[in-house]
């Protein structure tokens, strides 16, 4: 409007005084990645890191994820003592690992173990994207493979929650081979009649989406999660075309037949436990018949 042209506009932004900044301790407030509204972090946490306003699903760390799926105090961790070495002597890899260990309190990008979901014994592998973007190196591949093997041997279902940018570049082709390693373990698990549920969370891409994430009997995802093989930027450069905003979202994948269901975080435990219940008799029968 022409009128606006004459009206005085503030040409400056207001910067809070240093003291004022200190009034709000760090980590008290958090801006929603979806609607940009600001919330008390506690409020978000109480809502499983899902925005109460717009439903945007924020990152959930591995132990919080386990807490929201498993019955209280039922979880028992496996192989937490595996740590990455630097097989290729890749420059500054060790420092990066050390930094992420300190930052997250985790030894690696996946937590595995078993526990109970509404009373049903279940094995789980949960990736944590805060550790090296959840990338898969030797340790992630080994822990997931061992967890699948354990689940197979114990005759219990397996859940894999993915959150990963793909293979870990610093371990080169060793990390690539974790795709086949985990997939072979899954093949043997399926052959024995095991139930595998995949829950893809934001982001699930590259070598992780192209291996265990897509190999569940049921493949689920959280709303809005980024899921895909190649990165958006690489695709845009290759096809010289701008991609739609919803490209590679969980909803996009559902529409293209790649997912069984998109499930909001608050409903996840209920849906999973219903599925576990529906597989109880069948699972037990095949278990007894194979063990004879």
């Amino acid at each position: 409007m022409l009128k606006d042209f004459f009206s005085k506009k503030k040409k400056y932004a207001s910067i809070p005084r240093e003291e004022a900044k200190k009034d709000v301790p760090e980590g008290l407030m958090q801006k929603c990645g979806g609607c940009q509204k600001i919330f008390y972090q506690k409020e978000l946490q109480k809502n499983l890191n899902v925005c109460p306003e717009c439903g945007h699903h924020h990152q959930l760390n591995a132990y919080d994820r386990i807490a929201c799926l498993f019955d209280d105090n039922s979880f028992q961790e496996w192989d937490e003592n595996l740590i990455s070495s630097n097989p290729l002597n890749f420059p500054s890899y060790i420092e990066k690992l050390e930094k992420d260990r300190k930052k997250t309190g985790l030894n690696e990008a996946v937590v595995t173990g078993k526990g109970k979901i509404n009373g049903f014994p279940t094995a789980i592998a949960v990736m944590d994207s805060r550790f090296r973007m959840g990338s898969m190196g030797s340790v992630v591949g080994e822990k997931i493979t061992r967890a699948i093997e354990n689940a197979k041997d114990q005759g219990i279902p397996m859940i894999i929650c993915t959150a990963s940018g793909g293979a870990r570049m610093q371990e080169g082709v060793l990390s690539l081979m974790q795709m086949s390693k985990t997939s072979i373990a899954i093949q043997r698990f399926h052959k024995k009649g095991g139930l595998l549920i995949s829950i893809m969370t934001n982001p699930t891409t590259g070598g992780v989406s192209a291996s265990f994430a897509m190999l569940g009997d049921y493949n689920f995802a959280e709303p809005g999660a980024l899921i895909g093989f190649a990165g958006r930027r690489i695709i845009e450069q290759t096809i010289r075309e701008k991609l739609p905003n919803d490209f590679q979202t969980a909803e996009f994948q559902l529409k293209h037949g790649q997912l069984d269901k998109v499930i909001p975080r608050q409903e996840m435990k209920e849906v999973i436990s219903t599925i576990l219940d529906l597989h109880q008799s069948g699972g037990n029968e095949s278990e007894t018949s194979t063990s004879v």
Binding site: S180, A210, A213, L215, A230, I234, I235, H256, Q258
Partner: peptide
Amino acid sequence: AYPGKAAEERGQSEAIAKNLMEMAG
């Protein structure tokens, strides 16, 4: 594998993952 729009729409990840698993058996 081709990083294209159509490839993603038709399930590039699933196609690769499935081969890895099936070849194992």
